[in-house]
Design a protein around this nucleic acid. Sequence first.
DNA 1: GTGGGGCTTCCCATGGTGGGAAGGTCAAGG
DNA 2: CCTTGACCTTCCCACCATGGGAAGCCCCAC
Lengths: 155, 155
Amino acid sequence: MKPADSITIGEAARATGVSAKMIRYYEETGLLGPAARTASGYRLYAPADLHALRFVRRGRDLGFSVEDIKALLALWQDRARASAKVKALALGHVDDLRRRIAALEDMARTLSDLAEHCCGDARPDCPILDDLAAGATTGDGPHHPAFGVGRTPSR
Amino acid sequence: MKPADSITIGEAARATGVSAKMIRYYEETGLLGPAARTASGYRLYAPADLHALRFVRRGRDLGFSVEDIKALLALWQDRARASAKVKALALGHVDDLRRRIAALEDMARTLSDLAEHCCGDARPDCPILDDLAAGATTGDGPHHPAFGVGRTPSR
DNA sequence: GTGGGGCTTCCCATGGTGGGAAGGTCAAGG
DNA sequence: CCTTGACCTTCCCACCATGGGAAGCCCCAC
């Protein structure tokens, strides 16, 4: 029944670090082709499938969306691919990462500045709450749209 | 009918930068108390409500979860609060932000290193795909957890 | 032949956000 | 007075990637 080099989904999960749940999900959404099955319906994974699963896992670890990974997988399996396409995808993703990093850094900077000025004792006075409430009264002040994130504390 | 200083949800949305959808959601999930209503069921917002909405908005801009904002709102409205609690919340959030930043930076660094060595022309050779495929063969190597490093709401 | 662990499918939840349908309300203008 | 159009209401659906769990087979070892 079960070919010698094929393993079940649980074993594949352990071997690749991708949960069985996610393996099924990737199949369902078309990231991976339908798995081979035993007569009784169990999914079977051959070494090449594990290879693809680890590829996907690595892509996720690098923060690629499943959609991007679908494209990368296709390029990987296309022996006539142009590396330019891969590079463009990767650099686009790096841009995305950098934008998200900048947004998070803005938040972290603003917040730790505020926290630095908060004595953090039993008294109620708190520049952090003051800032939140000030955002509350200044509303969408001078630096409004710019996807919100970079507002400087107004005082 | 409609008190002079109260406005409808759409006006409140425009005034605070929080969409009507989200205002309803915040009410539904208990972040905000139930809004006043006209006889015909329209929600009404008084200036104090707008104040709270802007507070929430500013908190979201700073990357706080709705749950955290619920706590911050309660502290804001508690005149006997200890600023230590606010500070602890804020610093905890800063830690979280820094962890996410570090994870994203790892990804960005790795990827741009790889991209730098990819000539990006019509040839198929590509160190980026090689790395993905190598993560594919090394598989369960270092296996850094990289917990929630997926996409964060860029908002 | 029985017990336990693995597999299957199916549904549900998360967190914030948007989209949209179906229907009620309100104000302005004919 | 009636229409029109902008607004409001509730309700359901979708996203993205992931986990949880139930009900029901399957397979192997004892």
